[in-house]
Design a protein around this nucleic acid. Structure first.
Lengths: 135, 135
DNA sequence: TTGCAATTGCGAGTCATTCGCATATCTGGC
DNA sequence: GCCAGATATGCGAATGACTCGCAATTGCAA
């Protein structure tokens, strides 16, 4: 099981303190932090790390397909480690809580629809927004 | 068949020249224009109309559920009249072209997934990104 | 250990969108 | 039709997320 650091080294990406910290933050986050939160968490490990570096490193990791960037409609990007299988998100409109889910039937349907339209599916984005069923 | 203007009047929304123009632009657009394009088209009808008014009017129409705002990941919002049934979008990664599609099985599946997770589905967003299948 | 290209922190710059405010425009009641 | 007051407009400035330019620092290969 390779770590993100291993994967970076493998691709010849220079491994700096700042990058190690951002990677650590991403790996130990179980939620979907935005850049501001990532910066806040990174500063706990090194108070001198800058915002620009957070953004640059997140972009680097995104380009390397090691991190996923999501836009949940609140005007800023949120990040999570790209690990295991694909999953989609359901956003609780009352609390902002984000629930992850996987559904193979859904994935198949997406591919099928794209194919019917004459396209090879390269990426997709699905978000459900709901409120908890009361009772 | 009520027009957007009718629907606005019905809800007691004051009908101004600027709003009539924005509505006209939205109604006669077959694509998914961003605010800049809406402004450009609106200026053809009244060169003095301002950007702020475009945004304010689009927001008004969005709040009234007469216009849909989409974010296709390029950093700006795109607008379309909210008419007929719900549909999703497939974005051609090579040309940026946007294809609309509807799929009832997909809609049912979305509702089912939300329900299983204990949520009442209030909104959702699905975008497929693909490249044309070459033959 | 050294050299130099890659990376960092900083502050300034972008870009889409929103706001504050003075002016202009609606619209319901006469 | 006309008026008053509430609303909407245009303008430019403000915001907020993100990116860039640059000088100083740092990683890493030889």
């Amino acid at each position: 099981m390779k770590t993100l650091v291993d994967k970076c080294l493998e691709k010849g990406v220079r491994m700096t303190d700042a990058r190690r910290i951002v990677i650590k933050v991403i790996q130990s986050s179980q939620d979907h932090p935005d850049a501001y939160i990532v910066h806040k968490r990174a500063k706990e490990r090194d108070p001198t790390i800058s915002f620009a570096t957070i953004y640059r490193t997140l972009k680097l990791l995104e380009d390397m397909q090691l991190v996923n960037r999501h836009d949940f409609g609140d005007g800023r990007s949120r990040y999570e480690e790209m690990y295991k299988g694909h999953h989609d998100h359901l956003i609780n409109l009352e609390t902002g809580e984000i629930i992850e889910f996987q559904n193979e039937a859904l994935e198949q349907l997406k591919r099928l629809i794209a194919e019917r339209l004459g396209y090879d599916l390269r990426d997709h984005r699905l978000e459900l927004y709901g409120i908890p069923i009361s009772t």
